[in-house]
C-alpha cells in the first residue's frame, strides 16, 4: 500500500483553508515508532502532522460525539471498520450527516502498539497484524465523501465465530469458570464503553446514580452485570470494530461475547450486518417479525 499521507495533508489543508470544515480529526506520529495517536487540528498550517501508517489503529469516530451539539463541521478520516462505526452513530441520529466530511481510507490491516511493545520488535515490519484486523470483513470504507487510495481486497478469512464455537462446546461450569476468570480482571475503567461507537447515549445507564445499576465496589457479580448489560445494549448494533477489546487494559476478550450475540441474532432472526448501510431498517432488537421463533408457548 502506498503512503497516502501526502494526499491526506493536501486535502485536509484545502478543506480547512476554504472553510469547508472547522476541524480535522486524523492521526499523527507519536513520540515512539509504534504510536500513532489521534490528532485534532483546526488550522491549515498544522496539517503536515497528519500521517496514516501501520499504527493508525484507533477509530476516530467516537470523538465526533464530543462535539455533537457544537454545530461545527468536522473532517474525519475513516478506515473500513471506523466507517461502520460512523454509520452506527449516524443511524442512531447522534450527529447529522451534513456535520461531517468523511475521508475514506482503504486499509489492509493495522498493528497494535501493545503487541509491538510485548513482541520486543524494533520496527513495524516485525510486528504481527492486530487481532481485530485478522477477521476484517470490510477493509474499504462503506461511507465516505471522498476516498484516498485504491480499494483493498478483503482477505479470505477463517471462521469469524471460531472462538465462540470453542466456548460453546464447554460445559456450563467450564463456561462460567472461563468467564468469571475473565471478568474478575475487570477494573471497570469503562474504556470499552467510552470507545464503543454503539455506546453513544448522552447519559449512560451506568452513570446514572438513581437507580444505580452497578455498585461502586468492584466485585465479580457487578463486573459480570456490567459486561452483559453493555453487550446487550449493543446487541444487534455492534459493528465488530473490535475497539473495546483493543483498549481493554486487562485483555478481557470482550468481542467473544459480542460475536456470540451476532451469531445468535443471525441464527434467530436472519443474517444481519450492523453499520453497513446507512438507510437501513432498525437493528434486530428494535423490530420484530410475527414469524419469529416461538419457544415460550
Amino acid at each position: 500500500m502506498s503512503d497516502p499521507s501526502g494526499e491526506m495533508r493536501e486535502l485536509a489543508k484545502k478543506l480547512l483553508e476554504n472553510g469547508e470544515v472547522d476541524r480535522i480529526i486524523g492521526w499523527e506520529k507519536g513520540n515512539l515508532w509504534y504510536q500513532s495517536p489521534p490528532l485534532f487540528i483546526t488550522r491549515a498550517e498544522e496539517t503536515d502532522r497528519l500521517v496514516f501508517d501501520d499504527f493508525a489503529i484507533n477509530s476516530l469516530v467516537t470523538y465526533l460525539l464530543d462535539e455533537r451539539d457544537s454545530g461545527k463541521k468536522t473532517g474525519i478520516f475513516v478506515k473500513g471498520c471506523d466507517s461502520r462505526g460512523l454509520v452506527r452513530i449516524l443511524q442512531d441520529k447522534q450527529i447529522a450527516r451534513e456535520s461531517v466530511y468523511v475521508i475514506g481510507l482503504p486499509c489492509s490491516g493495522k498493528k497494535d502498539p501493545r503487541q509491538a511493545l510485548s513482541s520486543g520488535a524494533s520496527e513495524s515490519s516485525q510486528v504481527p497484524p492486530a487481532a481485530k484486523c485478522e477477521e476484517c470483513l470490510y477493509p474499504n470504507p462503506v461511507i465516505y465523501d471522498v476516498i484516498i487510495g485504491e480499494a483493498v481486497e478483503a482477505k479470505a478469512k477463517g471462521d469469524r465465530f471460531a472462538a465462540v464455537k470453542e466456548i460453546e462446546a464447554k460445559t456450563a461450569d467450564e463456561k462460567y469458570a472461563y468467564w468469571t476468570s475473565q471478568y474478575s480482571k475487570c477494573l471497570r475503567c469503562l474504556a470499552c464503553r467510552n470507545v464503543c461507537p454503539a455506546c453513544n447515549c448522552r447519559e449512560c445507564a451506568f452513570d446514572i446514580s438513581k437507580p444505580r445499576i452497578l455498585a461502586k465496589e468492584n466485585n465479580l457479580s457487578h463486573n459480570m452485570v456490567y459486561h452483559l448489560t453493555r453487550a446487550f445494549h449493543a446487541a444487534g448494533r455492534c459493528v465488530e470494530c473490535g475497539e473495546c477489546e483493543r483498549v481493554c487494559p486487562m485483555g478481557i476478550p470482550i468481542m467473544q461475547l459480542n460475536k456470540k450475540i451476532i451469531k445468535e441474532i443471525n441464527d434467530l432472526f436472519g443474517p444481519y450486518e450492523a453499520g453497513v448501510k446507512l438507510d437501513e431498517t432498525p437493528p434486530p432488537l428494535g423490530t420484530y417479525q410475527t414469524s419469529d421463533p416461538e419457544e415460550f408457548m
Partner: peptide
C-alpha cells in the same frame, strides 16, 4: 413481540456464560 426477541437472545447469552 419485542420481548420475545429479547429473551430468545438473553437465554442464549445466559447459556453462553455458563448459567443454565
Amino acid at each position: 413481540f419485542f420481548a420475545r426477541r429479547r429473551f430468545l437472545l438473553f437465554q442464549r447469552i445466559f447459556d453462553y456464560i455458563g448459567i443454565d
